[in-house]
């Protein structure tokens, strides 16, 4: 086996933690306990965990509105994430951010971003800073097939390639930009082919296959750390969740979604591989799912017990006061 069995089990567990986080968040949102709106990444766990598992703690990640999975995969604290979703004072952003604006600068998460493609220009800065400081960190930006059509993406990919910045453009093509299918919004089927226009490698992989995602990511990281510049990786996946929770999803059929929930589910695929390889049995499997459920149970309890911020705290944190 190419990968160490224990490590694979750990990644499997992390994917299940992401799935459980998203599922539980969806339940509490439906119950009216999470304000605002949330965007879940169910079905995209091989991408988030696959990419982030290749990173060092000091590497940077910027994510998007569908960012819970990326954060968990990069090592974010689940209690503080949950508390933030609930709008509580103990959340990562003390209730000022919510689902779309979570960050943990202590572990290189430079933030989720509520503006589609909003993180891409910022990742250029993280990459440039790495270059100026002469470290061998890398910077990863997750974005979707919808974001790929923003004009800023062109500016950033060109600049990153001209300057050979240590960036991995992690495009998660989940086939739906909100309610618009990829074929109606992108002129190309494989968005990664656009990398040619920036003279950088562009690779499309099966984004529901943890191994493919990791292999592409490791190669891109090697390239970035050795000063050869950015790579565009297109993880082809599928958004099982609606665009947002509560999305009536009139734009697609259950028949379209079904295979992605079944044989193409990234967690199921890794599960089957691990069982076939003799690394995982059903007893262990059950224990992993139960463990993740317990983590979320604790996190929800923490969030619920935590106080809301005082309304006046809204006036804090705007500026660094010197």
């Amino acid at each position: 086996m190419a990968e160490d069995a224990n490590m694979l089990l750990e990644l499997y567990e992390r994917m299940i933690t992401v799935r459980t986080f998203e599922t539980v968040a969806g339940e509490y949102f439906a119950a009216g306990e999470i304000p605002g709106f949330i965007h879940l990444s169910i079905g995209q766990e091989a991408s988030s965990v696959g990419v982030c598992s290749c990173l060092r703690p000091d590497d940077y990640v910027i994510t998007n509105h569908r960012g819970h999975g990326h954060m968990i995969a990069k090592g974010a604290d689940i209690k503080r994430m949950t508390a933030e979703l609930f709008g509580k004072k103990t959340g990562y952003c003390k209730g000022k951010g919510g689902s779309m604006h979570i960050a943990d600068f202590s572990i290189g998460i430079l933030g989720a971003n509520g503006v589609v493609a909003g993180g891409l220009p910022i990742i250029a800065g993280a990459g440039f800073s790495i270059k100026m400081r002469k470290t061998d960190q890398v910077a990863v930006c997750f974005f979707g097939d919808g974001a790929a059509n923003r004009g800023t993406v062109h500016e950033v990919m060109n600049l990153a390639s001209v300057w050979k910045l240590p960036i991995i453009f992690a495009l998660e093509n989940n086939q739906w930009a909100s309610t618009t299918p990829q074929e109606k919004s992108s002129a190309v089927e494989e968005i990664s082919c656009r990398a040619a226009g920036y003279n950088m490698p562009g690779v499309a992989v099966d984004g529901n296959d943890l191994f493919e995602v990791r292999n592409a990511t490791l190669e891109a990281i090697e390239r970035a750390r050795s000063g050869k510049g950015p790579t565009l990786i297109e993880n082809k996946t599928y958004r099982i969740s609606g665009h947002f929770e509560g999305d009536p999803q009139k734009y697609r059929t259950q028949a379209e979604i079904a295979p992605w929930k079944e044989k193409n589910d990234p967690i199921r695929r890794l599960h089957d591989y691990l069982v076939t390889s003799g690394v995982l049995d059903e007893k262990m499997n059950l224990k992993i799912w139960e463990g993740a459920a317990a983590v979320l149970e604790d996190a929800v309890a923490f969030a619920k017990e935590s106080p809301f911020p005082e309304p006046e705290e809204a006036l804090e944190d705007l500026f660094v006061t010197q």
């Binding site: 220009p121 910022i122 993280a126 440039f128 800073s129 800023t152």
Partner: peptide
């Protein structure tokens, strides 16, 4: 963006 991202990372 380069300004923002580099300001966030110690420059």
């Amino acid at each position: 963006g380069v300004g923002v991202g580099s300001a966030l990372t110690d420059m």
